[in-house]
Each structure stands twice: as structure tokens, then as C-alpha cells.
Design a protein around this nucleic acid. Structure first.
Lengths: 128, 128
DNA sequence: ACCTATAGGGACAATTTTATCCCTATATCC
DNA sequence: GGATATAGGGATAAAATTGTCCCTATAGGT
């Protein structure tokens, strides 16, 4: 989330627009999950053990605000909510599929180089 | 860059592997530029006015370490370097094209909702 | 002697994104 | 009465990513 962003997003390019929509840590996974029928927040939470409720809630809210998913609220208690993909959201599925496939096809190589890169770069910068 | 990453990347999923490779702010743009023949750092810098040398250098280094681009050093002074896509890097082009197209096709809608989302969320969080 | 172009990185500040902790509200079940 | 499931968000801490500033080195031009 942001507070009066200081550094503008370079939106001249379609890439950055798409990145703004898909770039959140869990967004592509969420789109996949909703498309696969996991539509209620509590179910999504179970599906991704390391994704916490708070973060889930924010990513869903942004996806909704960006017109990628829509939210149906059932007037019940305890609350029931279901998300689904909008047509715009569904139009992202081919991209997400390609990315998932590319990652899986190159998994062994990528796991190796990602790990090596981490080691390499650890030296170059420091937390503070 | 990182210093002994504290929170591991969820690499069970191909999506997150791909995201680790393409997720940097300028990486997709750099792959595009290199593919388009803009191969020298100084040229790339000119092509992206808001991308500074330091950041460029880091993103290129990571792309190289991830096996996406390769670096040719010409033994000259002043230094001359050219980057090009590896076959692995070239295999990302279809994904990048799709993302660029999707963003451009939906540009007017996206610019609107991205702006609205920003306003919406400004209230919800604060810098510190 | 000085300036320019060139590629790269150290040190650190600023910004942005995620994570953690805890609280609200209510019908149903034990 | 008390626990449970449910969806969501405030406040704040932590982590990760980018940005800024400045320094190295050297051939060639003026």
C-alpha cells in the first residue's frame, strides 16, 4: 500500500501498467486460485500457508480496485464472500500460464542461479 | 539487492521463479531494449531517462547472473561492453510481449483505476 | 593540464512493500 | 457463558527494493 507515492510509475510503457497490476507478491497466484474455484478468503488462506490474512486482504482489495476480480457478498453471518475473475482478469490467464510454465520448465536451472545470485549479492549490500 | 534474505521466496510454484527473474523494476524493459539492439549500458541509460546508472548496473548484473543476458567485454579504453540475450532470455520475449500488449490494450482503463486505487489506499496506510 | 566518455561499484538514504499483532462484529454450537 | 468461524482493517515493525552521491581507472581530444 502507499501513501502519496513519491516516485511515479513509468506508465508510458504497457509493461509497467501490467506490472502494476500483477506485481504484488501473491497476485498472480490469487488469480490462479480464484480461477481454479478457490473463491473464499478463508479457503485461499488455507491454500497458501505462508500468506497471512492481512496481506491477503490487501492484495484482494487491490485486485478488485484494479478491476481484475469482483466480489460477491452474501448477506449471512458469519460473513460469506466469494471472489471471481472479471473478463479483464480472465484475460490475464494466458500470461500467468506462460509465466508458470516458463518457471517450471526451467526450474532446476533457475533454483540454482537464484541461489547463486543471492550469495553473490549478499556481499554487495547491507541492511541497516 | 539483498543481504541474507530473511523471508524465503516461495519457489514451489513456477510463477514465483519467473517473478524472481522478471520482477525487478526495469528488467523486462531491459530485455526488450537489448533485444531491440540497444546493447551498451550508456545507450540503455539514454533510452530510459529515469533509470540511473547505478540501478542499471545492478539490474544488468542480476539478469546476467540469472542467465538471461550475457556480457561481452571488448578490451578497449574507454571500456566497451555489449549485452545480448541468451537463449533462455530470448525465451522470455513472448511473455514480455504479451504483458506489453495487455497493458497497452487496456491502457485507458488501467491508468484510471491505478490512479483511483492509489487515492483509495492513501488513506489506509502511512509512511513512517 | 584538463575535460570527456566509458563501465562499475561502495556506502548509505529514501521509498515501497510485506509481515505482525490485535481488534470488531455476530450467528451457531457445546 | 464461552469457543468457533468468518471477513476486514488500524497501527506499526520489518524487510526488500530503488535511488543518490561519489569514487576508480584510462585513452584520446583540445
Amino acid at each position: 500500500m502507499r501513501y502519496e507515492r513519491k516516485i511515479p510509475i513509468p506508465i508510458e510503457c504497457g509493461l509497467h501498467l501490467t506490472k502494476e497490476v500483477l506485481g504484488g507478491k501473491w497476485k498472480m497466484s490469487l488469480i490462479n486460485a480464484i480461477h481454479a474455484g478457490i473463491k473464499r478468503p478463508a479457503r485461499i488462506e488455507q491454500a497458501f500457508p505462508t500468506l497471512t490474512k492481512r496481506v491477503l486482504s490487501r492484495q484482494l482489495k487491490e485486485l478488485e480496485a484494479h478491476g481484475i476480480i469482483s466480489k460477491e457478498i452474501f448477506p449471512q453471518l458469519p460473513p460469506k464472500v466469494e471472489y471471481s475473475l472479471t473478463p479483464l482478469g480472465a484475460s490475464l490467464l494466458p500470461i500467468i500460464d506462460m509465466m508458470d510454465n516458463w518457471g517450471n520448465e526451467n526450474r532446476s536451472f533457475l533454483e540454482k542461479v537464484i541461489e547463486e545470485t543471492r550469495l553473490m549479492v549478499e556481499i554487495g549490500n547491507h541492511a541497516h
